[in-house]
């Protein structure tokens, strides 16, 4: 790695003369540029996906975990007594920041989307809902269930884990797939640049053997190739990243109604993250070309 670093510096400083000893290559250059740009473009989306699902998982985890619901289904006569008992239990439970029985008005609002605005809610056996807000330490849900069943038999605690767990799991899996895609993109870029470099090395076999015969060191010959491919990968990736970011910027912005899909994008400092891609692509190209060149040179004396 240390040798690599000094090589990389020598490479960035550049040697216009060394560049000229290898004839310019037309279409492999364009192909490398295009491949690198396309891969970087895809990488931007994979990155946006990972970040968005990451945000989503975090949001679901925190929002849903912070609140839970106690539902009380009891005969009309016992409703008030059980509600009071349940509220008392909740008030004395550590980890519960607040508990509030929803008013009839609030419950009507919740049902409105399903039953319309004129629902005579007072005549229906609608269960009473209590909204429970946790503090940061959280409560012990099994203990709370036991105590509720003792004090208010009609009370059912719903701490949303049922909903939360599969959603968070899905979001985490998506994030993992996004990161895996980035890794695969990096490997595919490396593979394609290796192929392109090998093509260039084969096309220039004559040049390489002449250079070797007049006393060129391996590092010198390799550098002429490595420099080209590294710079091509770097500039291609820059183009791809900028195009990808423009595309992401023009996605519809996150909204309540749009849900998950419209949240796909970058937020805040995350907009800087895609700029890691071009140097990474350059590094991948550097290593791929250097390995290919040195392996090829070993075949010559």
């Amino acid at each position: 790695m240390k040798l690599d670093a000094s090589e990389l510096i020598a490479l960035l400083k550049g040697d216009a003369q060394a560049d000229k000893v290898v004839p310019p290559s037309g279409y492999t250059a364009t192909l490398t540029l295009f491949t690198s740009a396309a891969m970087a473009f895809l990488a931007v989306f994979a990155l946006a996906l990972s970040l968005a699902t990451g945000r989503l998982a975090d949001r679901w985890a925190s929002e849903l975990a912070r609140s839970s619901t106690v539902r009380i289904s009891a005969p009309a006569g016992q409703m008030d007594a059980q509600t009071r008992a349940a509220l008392e239990v909740l008030r004395t439970t550590s980890g519960v920041a607040s508990a509030k029985a929803l008013s009839q008005e609030e419950q009507r609002k919740l049902l409105e989307p399903w039953f319309g605005p004129d629902l005579p809610i007072e005549n229906l056996p609608v269960p009473q809902l209590i909204e429970v807000i946790e503090d940061s330490s959280g409560y012990d849900s099994d203990g709370l269930r036991l105590r509720l069943s003792a004090e208010a038999p009609g009370a059912v605690l719903d701490d949303h884990t049922r909903w939360r767990k599969p959603l968070i799991k899905a979001a985490d899996r998506l994030r993992f797939l996004g990161l895996l895609s980035i890794l695969l993109i990096a490997l595919a870029t490396g593979a394609m640049i290796t192929l392109a470099a090998n093509a260039a090395l084969s096309a220039n076999a004559q040049v390489i053997s002449v250079l070797r015969l007049v006393g060129a060191h391996d590092a010198y010959i390799a550098r002429a190739f490595v420099r080209r491919f590294t710079l091509r990968a770097l500039s291609g990736a820059l183009i791809g990243v900028v195009a990808g970011m423009v595309a992401v910027a023009f996605l519809p912005s996150a909204s309540e109604t749009g849900g998950f899909l419209t949240g796909l994008g970058f937020q805040g400092w995350h907009w800087l993250l895609p700029f890691v891609i071009p140097p990474l692509a350059a590094l991948v190209a550097f290593r791929a070309t250097r390995t290919a060149a040195l392996r090829r040179l070993k075949e010559l004396t």
Binding site: Q17, A18, K20, V21, P23, V207, V210, L211, V214, G215, A216, H217, Y220
Partner: peptide
């Protein structure tokens, strides 16, 4: 090296 002029070819050992 066929793509370089004679002067550059003659100077190649110096270069490398």
């Amino acid at each position: 090296l066929d793509h370089l002029p004679i002067a550059a070819n003659v100077a190649l050992p110096l270069r490398v």
